[in-house]
């Protein structure tokens, strides 16, 4: 099991939780597990079977796009951060 940090913009999709557990040996499995349980997350995270261009997924602080993308293997107990673009400054 890994811990997925949910950004404030997406918390309403997961019942307000700041962090949710998810299972999977790869980023793809882990996100699938998450999106199966919280289906409204899917359009926020995935586009054309890849990570959407307006969101970043970090595994232990590294952008998974710079690793093996959705196929990046995830060790048990890892921390994953979901980071959608955020514009607010006002």
């Amino acid at each position: 099991m890994s811990r997925v940090r949910i950004p404030p913009q997406l918390r309403s999709e997961v019942g307000g939780a700041r962090e949710v557990p998810a299972h999977g040996g790869t980023v793809r499995e882990l996100l699938d597990d998450l999106m199966d349980r919280f289906p409204s997350l899917r359009p926020q995270l995935v586009e054309d079977d890849d990570i959407a261009p307006f969101v970043n997924v970090y595994l232990e602080g590294e952008d998974v796009r710079t690793l093996d993308g959705l196929d990046t293997s995830v060790d048990h107990g890892s921390t994953v951060i979901l980071l959608p673009a955020m514009a607010g400054g006002l």
Binding site: P43, Q44, P53, F54, V55, N56, A85, G88, G89, L90
Partner: peptide, 25 residues
């Protein structure tokens, strides 16, 4: 490099839903 393009309008959080703790900025 971080976000090649902005999110589609329907997925961007609306300003009305926003809010910010005054000291955060």
């Amino acid at each position: 490099c971080l976000f090649p393009q902005p999110p589609p309008p329907e997925l961007a959080p609306s300003c009305a839903e926003g809010g910010v703790l005054g000291v955060l900025p």
